[in-house]
Protein backbone atom coordinates (compact mmCIF):
# COMPACT_ATOMS: atom_id res chain seq x y z
CA UNK A 1 0.00 0.00 0.00
CA UNK A 2 2.71 2.43 0.99
CA UNK A 3 4.49 1.68 -2.23
CA UNK A 4 1.35 2.66 -4.06
CA UNK A 5 1.16 5.90 -2.13
CA UNK A 6 4.83 6.50 -2.80
CA UNK A 7 4.34 5.79 -6.47
CA UNK A 8 1.41 8.19 -6.53
CA UNK A 9 3.32 11.00 -4.88
CA UNK A 10 6.37 10.43 -7.03
CA UNK A 11 4.29 10.55 -10.19
CA UNK A 12 2.55 13.69 -8.96
CA UNK A 13 5.93 15.21 -8.32
CA UNK A 14 7.18 14.14 -11.71
CA UNK A 15 4.13 15.72 -13.26
CA UNK A 16 4.89 19.06 -11.74
CA UNK A 17 8.64 18.87 -12.16
CA UNK A 18 8.72 19.99 -15.80
CA UNK A 19 7.30 23.22 -14.58
CA UNK A 20 10.59 23.90 -12.81
CA UNK A 21 12.64 23.49 -15.96
CA UNK A 22 13.15 26.81 -17.66
CA UNK A 23 12.84 26.63 -21.40
CA UNK A 24 16.14 28.27 -22.24
CA UNK A 25 15.57 28.48 -26.00
CA UNK A 26 13.04 31.23 -25.59
CA UNK A 27 13.73 34.86 -24.73
CA UNK A 28 11.50 36.39 -22.12
CA UNK A 29 10.49 39.94 -21.38
CA UNK A 30 9.01 40.74 -18.00
CA UNK A 31 6.71 43.71 -17.41
CA UNK A 32 4.93 44.83 -14.25
CA UNK A 33 3.29 47.94 -12.83
CA UNK A 34 0.24 50.08 -13.37
CA UNK A 35 -3.08 48.28 -13.19
CA UNK A 36 -4.42 50.83 -15.68
CA UNK A 37 -1.82 49.80 -18.22
CA UNK A 38 -1.83 46.05 -17.51
CA UNK A 39 -4.83 45.09 -19.72
CA UNK A 40 -3.44 47.16 -22.61
CA UNK A 41 0.06 45.71 -22.16
CA UNK A 42 -1.48 42.24 -22.25
CA UNK A 43 -3.26 43.01 -25.51
CA UNK A 44 0.03 44.26 -26.95
CA UNK A 45 1.85 41.17 -25.77
CA UNK A 46 -0.78 38.89 -27.32
CA UNK A 47 -0.55 40.69 -30.64
CA UNK A 48 3.26 40.82 -30.58
CA UNK A 49 3.40 37.03 -30.70
CA UNK A 50 2.59 37.30 -34.41
CA UNK A 51 5.55 39.65 -34.85
CA UNK A 52 8.03 37.63 -32.83
CA UNK A 53 6.78 34.15 -31.88
CA UNK A 54 10.07 33.37 -30.14
CA UNK A 55 9.64 36.01 -27.44
CA UNK A 56 7.50 35.28 -24.41
CA UNK A 57 6.22 38.36 -22.63
CA UNK A 58 4.76 38.34 -19.14
CA UNK A 59 2.66 41.17 -17.74
CA UNK A 60 1.68 41.59 -14.14
CA UNK A 61 0.03 44.31 -12.09
CA UNK A 62 1.19 45.62 -8.76
CA UNK A 63 0.52 49.30 -9.33
CA UNK A 64 2.87 51.93 -10.73
CA UNK A 65 4.75 52.22 -7.44
CA UNK A 66 5.14 48.44 -7.18
CA UNK A 67 6.36 48.24 -10.76
CA UNK A 68 8.97 50.94 -10.15
CA UNK A 69 10.19 49.07 -7.07
CA UNK A 70 10.50 45.86 -9.09
CA UNK A 71 12.40 47.69 -11.83
CA UNK A 72 14.74 49.16 -9.21
CA UNK A 73 15.35 45.69 -7.81
CA UNK A 74 16.08 44.36 -11.28
CA UNK A 75 13.29 41.81 -11.34
CA UNK A 76 11.59 43.11 -14.50
CA UNK A 77 12.65 44.48 -17.87
CA UNK A 78 9.95 47.08 -18.40
CA UNK A 79 7.95 48.97 -15.79
CA UNK A 80 4.44 50.07 -16.76
CA UNK A 81 3.58 53.36 -15.12
CA UNK A 82 0.57 55.62 -15.23
CA UNK A 83 2.57 58.52 -13.78
CA UNK A 84 6.00 60.02 -14.45
CA UNK A 85 8.72 58.67 -12.19
CA UNK A 86 9.57 60.86 -9.18
CA UNK A 87 13.05 62.29 -8.91
CA UNK A 88 13.98 60.19 -5.90
CA UNK A 89 12.86 57.05 -7.75
CA UNK A 90 15.04 58.01 -10.72
CA UNK A 91 17.93 58.65 -8.35
CA UNK A 92 17.61 55.19 -6.81
CA UNK A 93 17.87 53.59 -10.24
CA UNK A 94 20.83 55.78 -11.18
CA UNK A 95 22.61 54.90 -7.94
CA UNK A 96 22.07 51.21 -8.38
CA UNK A 97 22.69 50.69 -12.09
CA UNK A 98 24.72 53.79 -13.02
CA UNK A 99 22.16 54.19 -15.80
CA UNK A 100 19.26 56.59 -16.17
CA UNK A 101 15.69 55.43 -16.11
CA UNK A 102 14.44 55.95 -19.65
CA UNK A 103 10.81 56.80 -20.20
CA UNK A 104 8.79 56.09 -23.33
CA UNK A 105 5.24 57.39 -23.62
CA UNK A 106 3.08 54.62 -25.05
CA UNK A 107 -0.50 55.91 -24.88
CA UNK A 108 -2.81 58.47 -23.34
CA UNK A 109 -5.32 57.70 -20.65
CA UNK A 110 -8.31 59.98 -20.21
CA UNK A 111 -10.45 59.96 -17.10
CA UNK A 112 -14.10 60.76 -17.58
CA UNK A 113 -16.39 62.35 -14.99
CA UNK A 114 -19.60 60.35 -14.86
CA UNK A 115 -23.04 61.24 -13.50
CA UNK A 116 -26.42 59.53 -13.59
CA UNK A 117 -28.13 59.35 -16.96
CA UNK A 118 -30.93 61.74 -16.01
CA UNK A 119 -28.79 64.37 -14.35
CA UNK A 120 -29.44 67.70 -16.17
CA UNK A 121 -25.82 68.82 -15.68
CA UNK A 122 -23.74 68.51 -18.83
CA UNK A 123 -20.45 70.18 -17.95
CA UNK A 124 -18.30 70.81 -14.91
CA UNK A 125 -14.98 72.49 -14.19
CA UNK A 126 -11.91 71.23 -12.38
CA UNK A 127 -12.55 73.96 -9.78
CA UNK A 128 -16.04 72.63 -9.14
CA UNK A 129 -14.69 69.09 -8.90
CA UNK A 130 -12.23 70.34 -6.31
CA UNK A 131 -15.05 71.92 -4.30
CA UNK A 132 -16.95 68.64 -4.39
CA UNK A 133 -14.08 66.29 -3.61
CA UNK A 134 -12.03 68.36 -1.11
CA UNK A 135 -12.00 67.96 2.65
CA UNK A 136 -14.85 69.76 4.51
CA UNK A 137 -16.64 70.34 1.23
CA UNK A 138 -19.61 72.71 1.58
CA UNK A 139 -21.39 71.14 -1.37
CA UNK A 140 -24.20 68.89 -0.21
CA UNK A 141 -26.73 69.04 -3.03
CA UNK A 142 -26.51 69.25 -6.81
CA UNK A 143 -27.98 72.75 -7.12
CA UNK A 144 -25.02 74.00 -5.09
CA UNK A 145 -22.75 72.82 -7.91
CA UNK A 146 -24.66 74.64 -10.60
CA UNK A 147 -27.96 76.51 -10.41
CA UNK A 148 -30.87 74.57 -11.80
CA UNK A 149 -29.29 71.25 -10.84
CA UNK A 150 -30.98 68.43 -9.01
CA UNK A 151 -32.10 69.38 -5.50
CA UNK A 152 -31.14 65.98 -4.22
CA UNK A 153 -28.11 65.23 -2.09
CA UNK A 154 -24.91 64.67 -4.03
CA UNK A 155 -23.46 61.20 -3.62
CA UNK A 156 -19.72 61.31 -4.13
CA UNK A 157 -18.04 58.20 -5.51
CA UNK A 158 -14.34 57.67 -5.97
CA UNK A 159 -11.75 54.97 -6.52
CA UNK A 160 -9.38 53.78 -3.82
CA UNK A 161 -7.12 56.71 -3.08
CA UNK A 162 -4.04 54.59 -3.64
CA UNK A 163 -5.04 53.19 -7.01
CA UNK A 164 -3.36 54.92 -9.95
CA UNK A 165 -6.68 56.27 -11.16
CA UNK A 166 -7.75 57.60 -7.76
CA UNK A 167 -4.36 59.13 -7.05
CA UNK A 168 -4.23 60.90 -10.41
CA UNK A 169 -7.77 62.26 -10.13
CA UNK A 170 -7.26 63.61 -6.64
CA UNK A 171 -3.96 65.26 -7.58
CA UNK A 172 -5.47 66.84 -10.67
CA UNK A 173 -8.54 68.19 -8.87
CA UNK A 174 -8.08 68.59 -5.13
CA UNK A 175 -4.35 69.06 -5.47
CA UNK A 176 -1.36 67.23 -4.12
CA UNK A 177 -1.18 66.89 -0.36
CA UNK A 178 -4.77 67.99 0.21
CA UNK A 179 -7.15 65.59 1.84
CA UNK A 180 -10.32 64.21 0.36
CA UNK A 181 -13.87 64.77 1.53
CA UNK A 182 -14.99 62.39 4.25
CA UNK A 183 -17.38 59.59 3.29
CA UNK A 184 -16.42 59.20 -0.36
CA UNK A 185 -17.56 55.74 -1.40
CA UNK A 186 -14.29 54.26 -2.62
CA UNK A 187 -15.42 51.87 -5.28
CA UNK A 188 -12.86 49.12 -5.55
CA UNK A 189 -13.79 48.24 -9.07
CA UNK A 190 -14.69 50.08 -12.20
CA UNK A 191 -17.66 47.82 -12.58
CA UNK A 192 -19.00 48.98 -9.21
CA UNK A 193 -18.63 52.63 -10.31
CA UNK A 194 -20.73 52.09 -13.42
CA UNK A 195 -23.26 49.83 -11.66
CA UNK A 196 -23.77 52.37 -8.90
CA UNK A 197 -24.24 55.23 -11.35
CA UNK A 198 -26.78 53.18 -13.20
CA UNK A 199 -28.95 52.88 -10.13
CA UNK A 200 -28.11 56.05 -8.20
CA UNK A 201 -29.37 59.13 -10.01
CA UNK A 202 -27.63 61.63 -7.71
CA UNK A 203 -24.10 60.24 -7.81
CA UNK A 204 -20.92 61.65 -9.33
CA UNK A 205 -17.90 59.52 -10.15
CA UNK A 206 -14.76 59.32 -12.27
CA UNK A 207 -13.06 56.45 -14.04
CA UNK A 208 -11.29 55.54 -17.25
CA UNK A 209 -13.18 56.63 -20.37
CA UNK A 210 -13.23 53.00 -21.50
CA UNK A 211 -15.91 52.19 -18.96
CA UNK A 212 -18.52 54.46 -20.57
CA UNK A 213 -21.84 52.71 -21.23
CA UNK A 214 -25.25 53.90 -22.38
CA UNK A 215 -26.47 53.86 -18.79
CA UNK A 216 -24.32 56.73 -17.61
CA UNK A 217 -23.63 60.30 -18.69
CA UNK A 218 -20.15 61.69 -19.32
CA UNK A 219 -19.64 65.36 -18.43
CA UNK A 220 -17.63 67.82 -20.48
CA UNK A 221 -14.80 69.37 -18.53
CA UNK A 222 -13.52 72.92 -18.23
CA UNK A 223 -10.31 73.93 -16.49
CA UNK A 224 -11.93 76.86 -14.73
CA UNK A 225 -15.45 78.09 -14.22
CA UNK A 226 -16.64 80.00 -17.27
CA UNK A 227 -14.07 78.54 -19.65
CA UNK A 228 -15.38 76.41 -22.50
CA UNK A 229 -15.90 72.79 -21.51
CA UNK A 230 -14.34 70.00 -23.56
CA UNK A 231 -15.81 66.56 -24.06
CA UNK A 232 -13.29 63.73 -23.61
CA UNK A 233 -12.26 63.00 -27.20
CA UNK A 234 -9.04 61.40 -28.41
CA UNK A 235 -7.75 64.58 -30.03
CA UNK A 236 -8.43 66.77 -27.00
CA UNK A 237 -6.87 64.20 -24.69
CA UNK A 238 -3.66 64.30 -26.76
CA UNK A 239 -3.55 68.08 -27.15
CA UNK A 240 -4.11 68.60 -23.45
CA UNK A 241 -7.31 70.57 -24.01
CA UNK A 242 -9.17 67.97 -22.05
CA UNK A 243 -7.91 68.49 -18.50
CA UNK A 244 -8.11 64.94 -17.15
CA UNK A 245 -5.77 63.19 -19.56
CA UNK A 246 -2.33 61.78 -18.82
CA UNK A 247 0.37 59.85 -20.54
CA UNK A 248 1.08 56.22 -19.82
CA UNK A 249 4.73 55.21 -19.80
CA UNK A 250 7.10 52.30 -20.19
CA UNK A 251 10.25 52.68 -18.10
CA UNK A 252 13.50 50.81 -18.70
CA UNK A 253 16.85 50.93 -16.98
CA UNK A 254 19.04 52.66 -19.53
CA UNK A 255 18.13 52.85 -23.21
CA UNK A 256 16.16 49.72 -24.12
CA UNK A 257 18.17 47.09 -26.01
CA UNK A 258 17.49 43.84 -27.81
CA UNK A 259 14.05 42.33 -27.37
CA UNK A 260 12.85 45.17 -25.14
CA UNK A 261 13.84 47.75 -27.74
CA UNK A 262 12.14 45.82 -30.55
CA UNK A 263 8.96 45.49 -28.50
CA UNK A 264 8.85 49.15 -27.43
CA UNK A 265 9.53 50.29 -31.00
CA UNK A 266 6.68 48.11 -32.20
CA UNK A 267 4.33 49.41 -29.48
CA UNK A 268 4.96 53.02 -30.49
CA UNK A 269 4.73 52.18 -34.22
CA UNK A 270 1.52 52.65 -36.19
CA UNK A 271 0.76 48.96 -35.80
CA UNK A 272 1.05 48.99 -32.02
CA UNK A 273 -0.88 52.22 -31.71
CA UNK A 274 -3.71 50.91 -33.90
CA UNK A 275 -4.20 48.20 -31.28
CA UNK A 276 -4.62 50.86 -28.57
CA UNK A 277 -7.56 52.35 -30.40
CA UNK A 278 -9.18 49.07 -31.37
CA UNK A 279 -8.93 47.78 -27.78
CA UNK A 280 -10.66 50.97 -26.50
CA UNK A 281 -8.52 50.65 -23.37
CA UNK A 282 -6.71 53.98 -23.91
CA UNK A 283 -6.06 56.69 -26.47
CA UNK A 284 -3.28 56.27 -29.03
CA UNK A 285 -0.31 58.65 -29.18
CA UNK A 286 -1.24 60.03 -32.60
Amino acid sequence: MTSKILLLSVSLLALSLPSCKKDSGKATLKMAGSTTLAPLATVWAEAYRKVNPELSISVSGGGSGGGITELTEGRIDICNSSRPMKDEEKKKIKDKFQKDAVETAVAYDALAVYVGKNNPLSEISIEQLKEIYMENSAIKTWDQVAPGGLTTEIKVLGRESNSGTGEYFMEATVGKGNKARAGIAEMNSSQAVIDTLKTTANAIAYDGIAFKTDDVKVLSLAKKKGEPAVAPSADDARSGKYPLARKLYFYTVGEPTGAAKAFIDWVTSAEGQAIVNSSKLAVSLK
Binding site: S19, T35, S56, V59
Partner: peptide
Protein backbone atom coordinates in the same frame (compact mmCIF):
# COMPACT_ATOMS: atom_id res chain seq x y z
CA UNK B 1 -1.75 37.63 -12.12
CA UNK B 2 -4.71 39.64 -13.30
CA UNK B 3 -3.74 39.47 -16.95
CA UNK B 4 -1.15 37.35 -18.66
CA UNK B 5 -0.44 36.71 -22.32
CA UNK B 6 -0.36 32.94 -22.72
CA UNK B 7 1.23 30.71 -25.34
CA UNK B 8 -1.12 29.28 -27.98
CA UNK B 9 1.21 26.71 -29.53
CA UNK B 10 0.49 23.17 -28.56
CA UNK B 11 2.79 21.71 -25.91
CA UNK B 12 3.13 25.06 -24.16
CA UNK B 13 -0.60 25.61 -24.03
CA UNK B 14 -0.96 22.51 -21.86
CA UNK B 15 1.71 23.67 -19.45
CA UNK B 16 1.92 27.44 -19.72
CA UNK B 17 3.44 28.15 -16.31
CA UNK B 18 6.75 27.37 -14.65
CA UNK B 19 7.01 27.18 -10.88
CA UNK B 20 8.72 30.57 -10.79
Amino acid sequence: AAYLPLPENMPDKLMPYYLG
